[in-house]
């Protein structure tokens, strides 16, 4: 019985990204040796997270509240919506503390190969938010990949088709902070050269 519980835990942990059966076994041993200080609090935290975490009906963020903390924060600018592919991208932007507007999580990108169509993403929800009024700018912060930019252009067309006075912008592509030209890949350099801007 004990062995089957441990095996079950190892099997479940091995499904996490970055962990295989060997590392899952090590993690389980580590947890069992620290049952009071780590395993039980972790079990309680997992239990609470599974019970309380919800997907925000407005933006698609994960939070213990629905609508989420970001959507209900009065200090944020509701006139700006930043569209991201996944919750991880939202969290990355929040870490920068450089954006104080609202978000919209698409849940992926258009992908012909994987059969992801506009209906599979949260694009209708975004259109409804814009049509409800009050939105002045939509910032398309999808990844700088072919699928990401294809999705961004598709959304830009859909927003333009709504007939609302909304500015649609996208993130800049180019040289990262601290980047040295010699070490950059050709694609990034090409994008940076295309997106050059006057300095004065």
């Amino acid at each position: 019985m004990v062995t089957s519980d441990i095996d079950r835990l190892i099997t479940l942990l091995a499904k996490l990204p970055g962990l295989g059966p060997r590392s899952a076994r090590r993690a389980v041993l580590y947890l069992m040796k620290r049952s009071d200080s780590l395993m039980e609090p972790m079990a309680r935290a997992l239990d609470a997270a599974a019970a309380n975490i919800k997907t925000c009906a407005i933006c698609g963020n994960l939070d213990t509240r629905d609508p989420c903390e970001i959507c209900t924060d009065d200090r944020r600018d509701a006139a700006q919506i930043c569209v991201v592919e996944d919750v991880a991208d939202l969290w990355a932007l929040e870490r920068t503390a450089g954006f104080k507007g609202h978000y919209h999580v698409l849940g992926g990108t258009l992908s012909a190969l994987d059969g992801v169509t506009p209906e599979d993403l949260r694009i209708p929800g975004l259109c409804s938010r814009i049509q409800a009024g009050g939105v002045k700018e939509v910032i398309l912060a999808t990844n700088a990949t072919v699928d990401g930019q294809t999705t961004a252009h598709y959304i830009a067309d859909r927003v333009a088709g709504l007939g609302k006075d909304v500015v649609v912008s996208g993130l800049a592509h180019g040289v990262p902070v601290g980047g040295e030209l010699d070490y950059l890949d050709d694609g990034t350099l090409t994008a940076a050269m295309k997106a050059r801007r006057p300095l004065s």
Binding site: A144, V146, Q149, H153, A156, D157, G170, H173, D185, D186, G187, T188, T190, A191, K194, A195
Partner: peptide, 10 residues
């Protein structure tokens, strides 16, 4: 990388 030059060319 042809796509890199097309990021703003829908």
């Amino acid at each position: 990388t042809p796509a890199a030059a097309l990021m703003n060319c829908p």
